[in-house]
Design a protein around this nucleic acid. Structure first.
Length: 918
RNA sequence: GCCCGAAUGGCGGAAUUGGUAGACGCGCUGGACUCAAAAUCCAGUGUCCCUUAAAGACGUGCCGGUUCGAGCCCGGCUUUGGGCACCA
């Protein structure tokens, strides 16, 4: 009988579905294990061979854990709200729901062919109202909460209201955005609207004005992680900085906790480092400078990490968007300042970064250095960012390169503060050296001077220690259609939550998906978009809203009373293994952690971190092929000869190229313009050029997993993707080696069947066969636990070489179990042919016995002059003299001895060997 | 500019973490089977010297160091991938 993978794979996929083999249920008797893939956005292009890489790895791990006796939760679903479906809708008028539905169906078909062990009963899409009900619920919980800096946790807003009533704004230390100061009596006298406005400054989900990334081409604002180098990540459109009122999440309140608990996570160091950079903690001080403008004094707070350099301040700088700009612009400078602000506003984010042009304007006011009493000018310049620190800085050109560039351009004084620092050509930014020109700090090193300066400032009431984070609050509204509607309506101008029992607030039907003529979001087109007669919010939530708590929903996906029941949450707790790409490091993985910590604070979940262990699978790149057309002709020249002509490089579909050799007939048929093409060949063949590039439709280098399943089968695909190299590593897709893996599976089949005979016997295995088997068991356990799947596949091949002619049931049965996580279909088939009725999934992972793999030996540590150099395996019954002879004759010994000679060899029987050298 | 990571045959990649470098697979060469091809099986395959073999020398991006011993540790580079980037 032959290995008919098409038939086998179809049969067992149906069998697993019919028997719900992978259904997970909370079961207190077994230890749980939760394995999760980052769920996909179902794009129109379908899956390519790169997508399943992580899914295969996590599926192998899930199947392995099941064999090890764990109750495994391994779900899958779709991140279905998003921009592509909406843009397609704008172009074609097709409802995004329809597009999404079709794409999901296609993804599902493709996923099913690969034989994943998902519990499909738990599937959901983030655009299902039953699901986004809980996204809206979480939003309302955030709207109804504030962050207590003292307790470092979120609390219900009612408790804040109570505190205001008894002690005014001073009663709490709460995370806020520029909240006003008031007394308890004032609070009581405020109108409802005034109270609501104040509370809005404290809510964890709040509406507030801030400088946002505005993308006119997409007609929406974007979060920081959705902007790359000044362009939108989706579509690559220019982004502008603009002050706007938007919904935001107070992620910044959690910056410290997000940073600290990174240490407890089993993630790669590089990913943790990325998050640390993104959170960007910096320790320094806030200092107050008195500034005077046309005779009026203002106390302006600045942030610095170099309090030690305060004696070298020669000017101050405000960000153009700072609220101080207006108050500190003198009448005489007003015109110049206004012109400058206008000029800054017109620039895109890209131009601000890329230009690096030094620009600025004098405000007309002066500041007093609180330590020296010296007066210095106040400038306005775009190199100072409004969103970080206080939007104002003290400039020390001698020791900060940006201040230095500014001082040079505008001819401001530069005062060096560190002995020996040469500041004639550039600033001296390093935090080292000995202070001078710095009053009481003189003679100290920089490392001593920083805390000394801050201590001085604190004790004289001029400022205080302060930790700043780069992490900003997340802009949470998008001016788009295809997202979760905000369950908020505006009653007399007060943002009011839609009651919980009215959720989900479902997305209304509209006839066009574009913004309105007036520039309002698409939802403004909906008829009667009101609640209780009041207008509803017309923005929708961003893509990350639905993906921030989806791992919790999988624990209890059909619950209509809660996001997740307490019992389900306490059983499944958090994701034990999360597999996905690094591209989510500063987006989804920050937002999810924030979201989870918030729910933890309110007692809705029992773990404060969502993803215990994280593996980042690498990208699979495409291998593109090129043909070379001679300019202005329809003649194509083979790669080796292309330098003799002037040619244009054209991507050619890799499906009509084999081993870099072009199928000329297929090429002529590929596109009408090539039907009459002529060719200049090498050795009778057309050789194509090639390059490794991103796998994409436009480069004609996409390999569809369906094709691989057709030609080789899903088991080969799974095994091959793992064999390509470490899961974490990016690598180009290359089918060169796939035959070797396929050959391996055929050989496995041949252990059971030759052409027509069943070969399996009940003979007793030999010692060598057991040794090969147990070596494999040991290796596989070790490798799977450390995600070295490529070496596990190698171990299978080695074991197979050792077991070539072994048809013994006692060896083959455990072998199938070992192989089943990697190649589930072929093993399931053979497992049943061996007479087993139930799925191999329920088998037990074979136990590893060291005695089969290691001879009965003693391990002697061999040391030279007391330092252990190597271990020698010696049969246990050897006498000391024989051991000594072995050591002396050991092939490595001369190398350890080097130029010295052996004085004597001391052997402690069964324990240790020491070689004394002279 | 700053912060991580990587560099090993013709190729993808191994190496028990300081102990026989190149596992396993691909490719290539030769052979068996075949009328022939495909498939399958067997053998060989880091480089140099050599008809071949033995033996030897060299060999993990470059220079130096520690060590009896370095792909692995230390110092200094080169190339390359990724992240952050007027964050005071």
């Amino acid at each position: 009988m032959d290995y008919n993978f098409i038939e086998i794979e179809k049969r067992w996929q149906q069998w697993w579905a019919a028997h719900k083999t992978f259904r997970a249920e909370a079961d207190g008797k077994k230890p749980k294990y939760y394995v999760l893939d980052m769920f996909p956005y179902p794009s129109g292009a379908g899956l390519h061979v790169g997508h399943p890489l992580g899914y295969i790895a996590s599926d192998i791990f899930s199947r392995y854990k099941r064999l090890k006796g764990f109750n495994v939760l391994h779900p899958m679903g779709y991140d279905a709200f998003g921009l592509p479906a909406e843009q397609y809708a704008i172009q074609t008028g097709q409802h995004p729901e329809k597009t999404t539905h079709d794409n999901v169906a296609r993804y599902r078909r493709q996923l099913d062919r690969i034989g994943f062990s998902y519990d499909w009963d738990r599937e959901f899409r983030t655009c299902d109202p039953d699901y986004y009900k809980w996204t809206q619920w979480a939003f309302l919980k955030m709207f109804g909460s504030w962050y207590d800096n003292r307790l470092q946790k979120a609390r219900p807003i009612e408790e804040l209201v109570a505190a205001f009533g008894s002690g005014g704004s001073a009663a709490v230390d709460a995370a806020n955005n520029d909240a006003p100061v008031f007394s308890a009596d004032e609070w009581k006298s405020f109108s409802d609207k005034e109270k609501a406005d104040i509370l809005m400054h404290y809510r964890i989900a709040y509406q507030g004005e801030s400088t946002v990334n505005w993308c006119p081409a997409l007609g929406t604002v974007l979060a920081n992680d959705e902007v790359k180098d000044g362009y939108s990540e989706r579509g690559g459109h220019p982004v502008f900085q603009k002050k706007m009122t938007q919904w935001q999440l107070r992620v910044s309140a959690y910056a410290g906790r997000l940073l600290d608990s990174l240490d407890r996570l089993d993630w790669t160091d590089s990913l943790k480092e990325m998050q640390r950079n993104w959170i960007g903690k910096s320790q320094g001080a806030e200092m107050v400078f008195r500034m005077e403008c046309d005779g009026v004094a203002h106390d302006v707070t600045i942030f610095t990490t170099r309090a030690d350099t305060v004696f070298g301040v020669t000017f101050m700088v405000l960000a153009p968007e700072s609220e101080w700009v207006e108050k500190l612009t003198s009448a005489s400078q007003k015109e110049a300042v206004d012109a400058y602000l206008e000029q800054v506003k017109k620039k895109t984010e890209r131009e601000r970064i890329a230009g690096k042009a030094v620009t600025g304007v004098f405000s007309g006011s002066y500041a007093t250095n609180p330590l020296t009493g010296e007066k210095v000018p106040v400038w306005i310049a775009e190199y100072v960012l409004a969103g970080y620190g206080t939007g104002a800085i003290m400039a020390v050109p001698a020791h900060d390169s940006r201040d230095y560039a500014f001082a040079k351009k505008f001819d401001l004084p530069i005062v060096p503060l560190i002995e020996g620092a040469d500041v004639s050509e550039s600033s001296f930014d390093a935090k080292e050296g000995v202070m001078m020109n710095s009053g009481f700090l003189n003679g100290m090193t920089v490392k001593e001077a920083i805390p000394a300066a801050i201590d001085y400032v604190e004790s004289h009431g001029l400022g205080r220690r302060k930790v700043n984070y780069r992490l900003r609050d997340a802009i949470f509204s998008r001016q788009r259609y295809w997202g979760e509607p905000f369950p908020i309506y505006f009653k007399d101008g007060i943002a009011t939550p839609v009651p919980f029992d009215k959720l989900p607030l479902t997305l209304p039907e509209i006839d066009e998906y574009k913004p309105t003529e007036a520039g309002e979001p698409p939802l403004a087109r909906a008829k009667d978009w009101t609640y209780d007669g009041y207008p509803l919010e017309t923005s929708t939530m961003p893509g990350f809203a639905g993906s921030s708590a989806y791992y919790l929903r999988y624990m209890d996906p059909h619950n209509d009373k809660a996001l997740v029941s307490r019992e389900a949450d306490e059983y499944w707790r958090s994701v034990d293994l999360y597999v996905g790409g690094t591209e989510h490091a500063t987006g989804h993985l920050i937002y999810s952690r924030f979201w989870n910590k918030f729910l933890f604070d309110l007692g809705y979940v029992c773990e404060d971190e969502p993803f215990r262990k994280l593996i980042n699978q690498g990208m699979i790149q495409g291998r593109s092929n090129f043909v070379y057309r001679i300019v202005n002709t329809n003649t194509f020249v083979s790669c080796g000869l292309k330098d003799r002509y002037e040619t244009t490089e054209i991507h050619v579909d890799i499906n009509i190229v084999r081993n870099d050799r072009l199928d000329i007939e297929a090429f002529k048929a590929w596109r009408p313009e090539f039907a009459t093409a002529e060719f200049i060949l090498e050795d009778g063949e057309y050789i194509c050029g090639w390059a490794v590039e991103k796998m994409s439709k436009s480069m004609y280098n996409v390999v569809n997993p369906d094709q691989v399943c057709d030609t080789y089968g899903a088991d080969t695909l799974r095994l091959y993707e793992m064999f390509l190299g470490p899961v974490e590593q990016s690598k180009p897709w290359d089918t060169k080696g796939i035959d070797g893996v396929n050959r391996f599976l055929k050989k496995v089949w041949r252990l059971f069947w030759d052409r027509e005979n069943w070969l399996v016997t009940d003979e007793k295995p030999t010692a060598d066969e057991l040794k090969a088997l147990h070596k494999l068991i040991g290796k596989e356990q070790e490798d799977i636990e450390s995600f070295s799947y490529n070496t596990t596949v190698s171990a299978f091949m080695i074991a197979l070489n050792d077991l070539q002619n072994c048809h013994k049931r006692a060896v083959l049965e455990p072998l199938l179990v070992l192989l089943s996580p990697f190649a589930p279909h072929i093993t399931e088939e053979l497992w049943h042919q061996l007479g087993n009725v139930d799925s191999i999934t329920y088998a037990a992972f074979p136990e590893y016995h060291e005695e089969y793999t290691v001879e009965n030996t003693v391990k002697y540590p061999v040391s030279f002059n007391g330092k252990t150099r190597f271990f020698l395996d010696v049969p246990a019954d050897k006498a000391p003299a024989e051991v000594e002879a072995l050591v002396r004759s050991h092939e490595m010994t001369p190398r350890y001895v080097g130029a010295q000679s052996i004085v004597k060899v001391i052997v402690v029987p069964g324990r240790i060997v020491n070689v004394v050298l002279k």
